[in-house]
Amino acid sequence: MAAPSNRSTGKRNVSKERIGFIGVGLMGHGMAKNIVEKGWPLTVMGHRNREPVEDLKRRGAEEARTPKELAERSDIVLLCVTGAPQVQAVLTGPDGLAAAGRPLLVIDCSTSDPSVTTRLAEELAPKGITLIDAPLGRTPVDAEAGQLDVMVGGPDEVVERARPVLEAFSGRIIRTGPVGTGHTMKLLNNFLSMGYAALYAEALALGGKVGLTPQVFDSVIQGGRMDCGFYQTFRRYVIEGDRNAHKFTLRNGLKDVSYLAALANSVGLANPVGAAVRNSYALAVGTGHGDDYVPMLTDVVAKQNGIG
């Protein structure tokens, strides 16, 4: 194999660049699996859950102990961590990616605060690190299948370099504009999805109060104008009891709508619906349900209303 390019910008090399991946959790494992199985040299960082790491090593990946060590073995690094504090720690911590002192292209696939993303991109550029944002749409099932939606913010030439890697695990790649716009679009997308869940949960609770079963509710919504892909995974828990149908925690939902609230505040936008949606998730997390998945918001709302 030809030697990989160490450039952080410019046209992509025809050879396979060395890929680092930090965050091989629910979404990250499927993404990393597709990367290594499609021929990219892959190094992953240790994760508290050893199972996905060991699985990726069996498929040909190597493991690094720290972000710095991973950076030393990589040309492009993908991040799929919880949020802005974790992204910043991985990039600028004592053993962070920047501590390796070498050029890198970093693709942040986390759902993060756009203002932090743009600040980090500016701070890291003089160190030879190019940061772009590429948050994700769809579910861990789609990650395993290589069919995620990716919203990419960054300069054209950098996005073109990143594109072959993104194509390894995506079905759609949507350009959003400059750095930070991918994370902004992701917050809007998650506001809609978390809002749908809050609406469904309250509608089901109200229906239950007046004697309409979830099955009746579902028979009207499914196949009608209010049906959508999100509802299809949501209903699989409510109607079929599939706890793993939509593996996105209420705690993460609260994080994302809190980022949205901060964004709205920063531009002086009144967002009363966003505030109401955030309160639904704050209630769920505050009553001990943060690690439950989003469709289980129905149980929290029902319990608060004396149903079930």
Score class of each variant (00 low, 15 high):
T298I: 02
A264I: 03
V294E: 13
V273M: 14
D256L: 04
L283Q: 10
G288R: 14
F248N: 04
Y293N: 06
D292E: 08
V267I: 15
N279D: 13
T287M: 06
G268Q: 07
G286D: 07
A270M: 11
G286L: 12
S258F: 06
A284D: 11
D292K: 13
L297N: 06
L269I: 09
L283Y: 11
A261K: 08
T249F: 12
G268D: 09
G268M: 07
A282W: 07
A261H: 11
L297P: 05
T287G: 09
T249R: 14
G288T: 05
G268C: 08
G290L: 07
Y281H: 12
L283T: 10
P272A: 12
G253T: 10
V294I: 15
G274M: 07
S258A: 09
L269C: 11
V277A: 13
A275I: 03
A282D: 05
L283G: 00
H289W: 12
A261S: 12
R278F: 13
G268E: 14
H246K: 02
R251Q: 10
P295R: 04
F248K: 02
L254E: 13
R251K: 09
S266K: 14
N265L: 12
F248Q: 08
V267R: 15
H289I: 00
T298N: 13
H246A: 01
G290M: 05
A261C: 00
V257E: 03
G253A: 15
V273R: 01
V267D: 04
G268K: 05
G286E: 08
F248P: 07
H289E: 03
D292M: 02
V267Y: 15
A276L: 14
N279K: 12
L283R: 12
V277P: 09
A264L: 06
A262G: 10
L250N: 02
K247Q: 15
K247N: 01
S266P: 10
P295E: 02
N279C: 08
K255W: 06
R278Y: 12
L283M: 13
A275P: 01
Y281A: 13
R251L: 12
D256T: 02
V257W: 05
Y293V: 01
H246T: 01
T287P: 03
L269A: 15
L269T: 14
T249V: 02
V285C: 09
M296A: 14
Y293K: 01
S280T: 10
H289P: 03
Y281L: 15
N271C: 14
D291M: 08
A264C: 13
V285W: 13
Y259V: 04
L297G: 02
Y293D: 04
K255Q: 12
D292P: 00
G268V: 09
G268L: 05
D292V: 00
L297I: 05
R278T: 13
K255C: 09
P295Y: 02
A276S: 14
L250F: 02
L269K: 05
N271K: 06
G286S: 08
K255N: 09
